[in-house]
């Protein structure tokens, strides 16, 4: 038994050095002033109008991105789970292919595509169609986030659906449910755990991103991630940056808490 535990050593070292100590430092910085005294001022700084606006926009865009991912991913996951192995592995390949490319590069590609004189607009004007100017707006950011995070929604849902007992679905049909009723009463509730982990895996990075908003927002759209980044890099104020990070962390944890609570309420039997 002791030997087994020894195997966890490398990871233990890793997590202490790169997760626990940094987290501890952020808490320390966030709750102290430059002179070392305790303060809540850094965290309270979130209430300035600009910061509140950035936080609100982050929540809104992350919510939109999660919703769009869910709407796109669920049907795809259903089709994948019902198709034969050879078909589905082809679809999965197409779908995973972009993930082999670094996500910064993919986001940069979107920047080039969406530019005022970029590929898409050149093509549109060639067809005498109106141009789309969504670069440097929240729309472009949502588009980029959906493109980058969609696989994290599909895979957990697909994993749950593929493991669903086919006889459970047959049993529902057998007891008189048509396909719509079977979906609403059996497939959907059974797949909630996958949906929850999909939402978590999309919402959290979308909430905290600053690279996508930087590249596709052109510095004109400030998300809370950008505010924190700027505080650290341009303002070099580690205390304020850490304080805001703590607030963001609390928001993320709270959001996940709400989602999980909703999940428990579901499985408790609202049928």
């Amino acid at each position: 038994m002791k030997r087994r535990r020894l195997l966890a050593g490398p990871y233990l070292f890793w997590s202490v050095s790169f997760i626990i100590i940094p987290l501890f430092l952020i808490v320390c910085y966030g709750l102290t002033k430059a002179d070392g005294g305790f303060t809540l001022e850094n965290a309270a700084h979130i209430t300035t109008p600009e910061n509140l606006k950035a936080l609100g926009l982050s929540l809104l865009l992350a919510f939109l991105c999660t919703l769009i991912c869910l709407v796109l991913a669920y049907p795809l996951a259903m089709i994948l789970s019902q198709s034969s192995i050879s078909q589905s592995s082809f679809i999965v390949l197409i779908f995973i292919l972009p993930m082999w490319m670094n996500f910064l590069l993919r986001t940069l590609a979107w920047q080039t595509l969406l530019e005022k004189n970029g590929v898409i607009n050149t093509f549109l004007s060639f067809l005498h169609l109106p141009q789309i100017n969504i670069i440097n707006t929240p729309y472009a950011i949502v588009l980029g986030m959906v493109y980058d995070f969609l696989p994290f929604m599909v895979l957990p849902i697909y994993n749950v659906l593929i493991k669903l007992d086919k006889d459970m679905i047959n049993a529902a049909r057998d007891l008189g449910a048509n396909s719509a009723q079977t979906f609403v009463k059996i497939i959907l509730p059974q797949s909630i755990p996958g949906v929850i982990s999909g939402i978590t895996m999309v919402f959290v990075p979308a909430m905290t991103t600053f690279v996508i908003s930087d590249l596709l927002g052109g510095g004109k759209v400030l998300l809370i991630g950008n505010v924190i980044e700027q505080t650290f890099k341009q303002g070099s104020n580690w205390h304020l940056g850490s304080g805001l990070s703590l607030v963001l962390m609390i928001f993320v944890i709270a959001s996940m808490g709400i989602v999980n609570k909703y999940d428990k309420g579901q499985s408790g039997g609202s049928f």
Binding site: D165, D167, F271
Partner: peptide
């Protein structure tokens, strides 16, 4: 109606 080999009860319902 059918009774399935592995019961196939709906695990999310009582």
């Amino acid at each position: 109606n059918t009774v399935f080999q592995r019961y196939a009860l709906f695990s999310h319902m009582n």
